[in-house]
């Protein structure tokens, strides 16, 4: 039972319809394109990518905040994509989300106590309107995130960004979810508060056995928190693997470019490793390139990369990569890219 994944996403595709106004023709934007991954119980899977890579769309589709065009999302055996109405509401408590901006995710007109109690009330866990019992539960939740009873009768504007994110986390854990989706949950915070929240999340995970789907663009943070990592580019997962393998010996040229673009916080080392940055930018999902989505920026691109989308193949050390270098031309055949190879072998 425990080796079945908690969350299983298969061939997820999400599309948006644009235009369709008087002058704009209707166009279809494929934000997520055939993405598959799973999250095990108690695990942190980080989905990493730049803006436009589709990582937040994946999070929203998993939460059923968006309707996928194709694919399935199974949580704990239930097919979320097939559920609706009361049946969907019944599984929602297992799945909670914390958003990036703690200034817009909390209702400014509500007291903290009411914000944290809301999921309990909505899901009928407020036990027949026993206000005192509900207050005690809210207080316990606030204590779990490092706040206290003194904060219950205040409004969001009285709190700093970090404290607000604690409140959002208290609200998210109120229903004891099995999976928490964290969409850039620490990106808006200053470093000194960011780490407090990361430590709190790690602490909650060990105590409750929750799993995290951790959406982030910050590789420094991901390296610290993730068990496994999925790298996304233009709506597709291009590489997955254990965090140690991804950060130690990645297999996709895009992963390599991403890792080398993060400046190292050490002037001597950073200046020694500086090199020509990856050219270009992520293409528009309205006009995706043929073949591999990364080929236009890839220093290793071959003819086949311009024609065919590479399939995922297994990599030594765990995980998989979608790259023609594995099977065509100079075959890597399951081997990661050598560190800092500027040209293919």
């Amino acid at each position: 039972m425990s080796d079945r994944p908690l969350l299983e996403v298969r061939d997820l595709t999400v599309q948006f319809q644009l235009g369709g106004g008087l002058f704009a023709p209707k166009r279809t934007l494929t934000a997520v394109n055939g993405v598959s991954f799973e999250v095990m119980r108690g695990e942190t899977l980080a989905i990493v990518g730049e803006s436009g890579s589709g990582k937040s769309t994946i999070a929203r589709a998993v939460m059923r905040l968006l309707e996928p065009a194709a694919g399935t999302v199974h949580l704990d055996g239930d097919n979320l994509t097939a559920l609706s109405g009361a049946a969907l509401r019944a599984v929602r408590p297992k799945l909670q989300m914390v958003f990036q901006d703690p200034y817009s995710s909390l209702d400014p007109s509500k007291l903290i106590a009411d914000i944290v109690a809301e999921p309990l009330v909505v899901h009928g866990r407020a036990r027949g309107g026993d206000a005192a019992a509900l207050d005690r539960t809210v207080q316990t939740l606030l204590e779990q995130v490092g706040l206290g009873a003194v904060h219950m009768n205040r409004y969001p504007y009285e709190f700093s960004g970090g404290q607000r994110q604690r409140i959002a986390i208290a609200r998210a854990i109120a229903l004891e979810p099995k999976l928490m989706v964290l969409d850039e949950a620490v990106s808006a915070l200053d470093v000194s508060t960011q780490n407090q929240i990361l430590n709190l999340l790690e602490d909650l995970r060990t105590r409750t056995g929750m799993a995290y789907l951790f959406i982030s663009h910050d590789l420094g943070v991901v390296q610290h928190v993730a068990d496994r990592v999925a790298i996304t580019y233009l709506g597709r997962i291009v590489e997955t693997g254990p965090a140690a393998r991804i950060f130690g010996s990645c297999a996709h040229p895009y992963t390599q470019a991403l890792l080398s673009a993060v400046p190292e916080p050490n002037p001597r080392r950073q200046r020694a490793r500086r090199h020509q940055p990856l050219a270009g930018e992520i293409p528009s999902p309205l006009a995706p390139p043929s073949g591999c989505p990364f080929h236009a920026r890839c220093p290793h691109a071959m003819d086949v990369c311009r024609r065919e989308m590479p399939a995922h193949t297994a990599v030594d050390g765990g995980g998989s990569v979608a790259c023609h270098l594995q099977t065509e031309g100079p075959r890597l055949a399951g081997k990661p890219l050598a560190a800092d190879t500027p040209t293919p072998p």
Partner: peptide, 10 residues
Amino acid sequence: DVTVQAQVLE
């Protein structure tokens, strides 16, 4: 994004 940040810093 980090890859674009690297370009602008360069």
